[in-house]
Amino acid sequence: MQPILEVKDLSISFTQYGRGTKQVLLPVIQDLSLTIAPGQVVAVVGSSGSGKSLLAHGILGILPYNSHMAGEITFLGQPLTPQRAAAVRGKEIVLVPQGVTYLDPLMKVGPQIRKGRRDQAAKAASRAVLERYGLGTDTEERYPFELSGGMARRVLIATAAAATPKLVIADEPTPGLDARSAKRVLSHFRELADGGAGVLLITHDLELALTISHRVAVFYAGETVEEANAADFTAGKLRHPYTRALWNALPQNGFVPIPGAQPGPGQVGEGCPFAPRCPKGRPECLGPVPYRALDGGLVRCLYPEGGERP
């Protein structure tokens, strides 16, 4: 089956002014690879500041002007050039952003969903899509500040579903919601995937991501360190030490923190970004570490769990 989205060796960096007029290239995402098949939910899980949102903006082609993107993105078998991204965004590729601040505060919900169209067909469509997410017709007449957190998320999903997309990119769709609302919001993404779309779920919440995802890519300091089937997590089949640390940090798995902090952009050397905090880190981890297949998943580690040294 042809994948909906294929990201290969994607790197995103920013041009920044260092001292004086010297320009510095600041890498934020490095060598990110990812594949999403139709009907699949792929979660990208990483803590805040790991560059997750930029991945979404990179795919949509809406990165700020001082950014630079390298690598290959293939959408439905064709390269996703900036021109093509501009043509398909909002139609075949949609974004579901984090929260209510992504809605125009001074525009009613209805016109926002309709993107300025005023015809009867558009009105009927927006009403139908709101209803699909359990929002009454009066929602159309509300301003964003009159929506509750959960309603706002559903309105944002409605904007995405209104376009009948092939790929849905959800950027942190659950923060600030209680567990029940968050599960409900996530189930809507699963519905979209069950309808044949690919869903890229960007989140920091590994536990919630596992409830709906097929595959999970773990992101650390701008790099994917592991990609695995969701079932591997519950089966305890983890490959990368960081994934293990993330897993053990969950409340139900012991709530174990590890010392140190994630390095910021530009602080990552050539080797494994996790090496300085890794309990199993060795000197050679600071050298090149290939991203390789291991037991049905991918891992960027010289000494992964359940794997011999290559």
């Binding site: 398909v88 965004r89 909002g90 974004l95 984090q98 992504y102 125009d104 993107k115 904007t159 376009a163």
Partner: peptide, 13 residues
């Protein structure tokens, strides 16, 4: 530079 303009861009406006 607001979030809602970024989202409008993402929606192809």
């Amino acid at each position: 530079e607001s979030d809602y303009v970024l989202f409008a861009k993402a929606r192809g406006e």
